[in-house]
């Protein structure tokens, strides 16, 4: 499965991902997304859960230690969790490098010797090292050039097929999500506002925010792009430290009514598998 979480910066999509892996503690207050049931694992349980759940980070520049070789970066989780002999470990690292499309002889090189796309491949190899079932991909292509993005996406899809992985794919790129996701959750200011299968969400978006978001994405076809009707939202995303009362989107919603400013909309299922939080749907 490939559920995706989509939203603008500051909406809490990365935070949600990190809370799931407990990379940051769940404060159990309003700042944390409401709809996520983060598993209250203790330290040992959490440690073991890392065997099944891994993460690919956004910035391959920041998430690889510049002083470690590629080999030691990829073998670190193996050293930490498994009792492998040095030779086994080395072989596994080489295999992992091959599976992400890199030369296995690169083990003794340092991250700075590689381009952004290659560094992201190293990050993917590290996430695969413990053969997890579930990987959170936090904006894995946002820092990459357009011509490299497709390479990394294709690699992620190949790996998913090969190892039967589940991805939680966090991104702000709606066209890419349409390509990769089975199900999509749209987030706004710390809440999921709409959740549906990818097909349904893109053809019949119900939440006004999803509609505005989709209409704001530029399409790379000049004829269609110039004919489209745009919903341009006014104002900015409010501060998550002081979210508006009622529906969080009420301050920018083109259709907001009185009750939207007072009551928080209920999260409900409007059709099979299509959930939305909006008074007006």
């Amino acid at each position: 499965m490939k559920p995706c979480s989509v939203g603008e910066s500051g909406c809490g999509k990365s935070t949600a991902g990190r809370v799931i892996l407990q990379l940051i503690p769940d404060s159990d207050q309003d700042g944390v997304p409401d709809d996520i049931d983060s598993c209250p694992l203790e330290r040992n349980g959490l440690r073991n859960s890392r065997l099944d759940m891994q993460m690919i980070f956004q910035d391959p520049q920041d998430s690889l230690n510049p002083r470690m070789t590629v080999g030691s970066i990829i073998s670190e989780p193996i050293l930490e969790h498994k009792n492998f002999q040095a030779k086994e470990r080395r072989e596994l690292v080489e295999q992992l490098l091959i599976s992400v499309g890199m030369n296995p002889r690169f083990t003794n090189r340092y991250p700075h010797e590689f381009s952004g796309g290659q560094r992201q491949r190293i990050g993917i190899a590290r996430a695969l090292a413990l053969s997890p079932d579930f990987i959170i991909c936090d904006e894995p292509i946002a820092a990459l050039d357009v011509s490299i993005q497709a390479q990394v996406i294709n690699l992620l899809e190949d790996l998913q097929e090969k190892y039967g992985l589940t991805y939680l794919f966090i991104s702000h790129d709606l066209s890419m999500i349409r390509h990769i996701a089975n199900r999509v959750a749209v987030m706004y200011l710390g809440r999921i506002v709409e959740l549906a299968s990818s097909q349904v969400l893109y053809s019949t978006p119900l939440h006004p925010y999803t509609q505005a978001l989709l209409s704001a994405v530029p399409m790379h076809d000049p004829k269609m792009e110039r004919k489209r009707k745009r919903t341009i939202l006014v104002g900015d995303v409010p501060s998550p430290a002081d979210p508006p009362s009622g529906c969080h989107f009420s301050t920018r919603c083109p259709r907001a009514e009185d009750r939207c400013f007072k009551d928080s909309p209920e999260w409900r299922e409007v059709s099979q598998g299509h959930q939305v939080a909006c008074h007006l749907v």
């Binding site: 603008e8 910066s9 702000h172 709606l174 978001l213 704001a216 530029p218 745009r230 341009i232 995303v237």
Partner: peptide, 11 residues
């Protein structure tokens, strides 16, 4: 900028 803000600026 975010997409919705980008749309504002382009406008």
């Amino acid at each position: 900028l975010d997409v919705t803000i980008q749309a504002q600026i382009i406008d």
